[in-house]
Structure formats: structure tokens, C-alpha cells
Design a protein around this nucleic acid. Structure first.
Lengths: 78, 78, 78, 78
DNA sequence: GTGGGTTTGTGGCACC
DNA sequence: GGTGCCACAAACCCAC
């Protein structure tokens, strides 16, 4: 491996690790929100379920829109 | 559930969903870095392995310190 | 589902359940060892930490070999 | 820590690690059974669900028996 | 469509 | 008893 490639490799690894730190930070933030909610008497397990269900719904809705777009385009309506 | 509680619930869900969007964004960024590296001829599978190994190493080092602290505390040395 | 398939299904489930019983038994044995150690004055929390750290060390060593293999293969050395 | 204690410590760690190896072996066996079932056309996801449901049922049944025992004893019927 | 890896969810377990 | 933590199990997604 050339010196240049090694340098690039190092840069890549560092960029990924930096981003993973950011990700870990955000995951910590999410946990904090849930902990706070828990302190107010909410059931965290259920809250997590709500979030995941809404995400699913959103995905389904977007897929439906995609299908709709496809059909509309197919019949020359846009 | 009172109106106030409903309002709080909505706020909590929204905050989590906002953070999850951020997280998804960062995960996208990580993927981009890997894609870019792949375009330069690096083997993504190996890169991922390297990153995870470095994380593991870091974890081990921290664990070792934790165990050491345990022992020092156990023998009354702090 | 044919009768034969039902019979196979039954056999599969029973084999898994038998193995899970074995597993539960071993987990019980592990707990006994720790309880015994506790009775002799050892700090179980530390013991568990030591075991997990040693496992982590082992994992890291294996991972390092895996990465090394990857590289050797990548540069066509095998 | 005395030499005797160190020796005991070593024995304890080794016993636990040996048991954990056994446990890992059994977990591997369970995986093999599922893989085999998959090869015969069974849906592993569903199989796992069946096993976990039966385990839950068993727990519930045992609890019900415990309650039954309690009542029977309470009314002096055993 | 099959396997591997990553992420998420759940249960048990120890500690307070 | 109840709370936080950790290991196990499940679901998910991508690449091949």
C-alpha cells in the first residue's frame, strides 16, 4: 500500500469514527428523552412502540405514494 | 389522560422522532463515506471490520480500567 | 400440511425445547458457581466483570486474526 | 489476597468459563436444528415464535398450578 | 433469495 | 419491590 493510500485510509477511518461518535451522542439524547418521560410517569416501552409504529406507517404511506406516482406517471398525468 | 398529558406526550414523540431523523442522517453519512472509499478501491467489508475492531479495543481498555478500579476499591485502596 | 410434515415439526420443536432445557440447566450451574464464590467472600460483580473482560480479550484477538486474514486475502497472499 | 484465595479465584473463573463454553455449544446446536428445519422448508421465524409461546404457556401453567396449590393448601385439602 | 452484520426489543438478574 | 443493567433473542437491511 502506498503512503498516499495509507493516508486516505486513515482519513476514512477517522471520518467514520467521528460520525459514529455523533451517532452515539444522538442515541444518548434519545435515551434522555425517554428517561425524562419515564420520570413523568410515561411507559417507555409503549412510547418506543408508538414511535416505531409511526415510522412503519410513514414508510407504508410513502410506498403508497410511490405507487400512486408510478401509476399517475404511467397514465401520463404528470 | 388529561389534555396536558396528551400535549406532553406529543412533545416527547416529536422530540424522539426529530432525533431519529438526525440519527438516520448520520447513518447515511457513514454509508456515503464507505461508498466513497469503495469508489477509491478500498474493501468496505474490511474497513467496517477495522472500525469495529478499534471500537472493541477501546472497550477492552476501558473495561480493564473498570476492573482495576473495582479491585483497588475492594482492597480499600481509595 | 401432511402428516409427515407435522411429525417432523413436532420432532424439531421437541429437539429445540430439549436443548433449551439443557441451556437453562447450565445457566443455573453458572449461577451456583457464583453463589458458592459469594459464600467464600468473593465479590460476584467483580468476578462477572473479570469473566466478561477475558471473553472480550479473546474476541479482540480473534477479530485481529480475522482482519489480518482479510488483508492477506485482499493483497492476494493466499 | 493469599495464595490460597488466588488459587480458588482461578478455579472459579475456569469453572464459569468452561460452563459458558458448554452454553455456547448448546446455542450452536439449537441454531443447527433451526438451519436443518429451514433446509426442509420450515419458516424459522415462526418456529422460534412457537417455541417461545410454548415456553410462555408453560410458565403461565406452572404459575396457575402454584396458585391452585396455594388455594388447595389454604382450604386444608392437602 | 440466502447469509452476515447491524440495530432494536425483551427478559432476567443483581443491587438498592 | 422496583429499578437499572446486561445478555440474549429477534427483526431488519444490505450485499452477494
Amino acid at each position: 500500500m502506498t503512503g498516499a493510500a495509507q493516508s486516505r485510509l486513515r482519513t476514512i477511518i477517522e471520518r467514520v469514527e467521528r460520525l459514529e461518535e455523533d451517532k452515539a451522542g444522538i442515541m444518548g439524547d434519545i435515551k434522555e428523552v425517554y428517561d425524562e418521560a419515564k420520570g413523568e410517569g410515561f411507559d417507555v416501552k409503549i412510547l418506543r412502540k408508538v414511535v416505531s409504529l409511526r415510522k412503519l406507517d410513514k414508510t407504508v404511506r410513502e410506498e403508497q405514494e410511490t405507487v400512486l406516482d408510478f401509476y399517475l406517471t404511467a397514465i401520463g398525468d404528470r
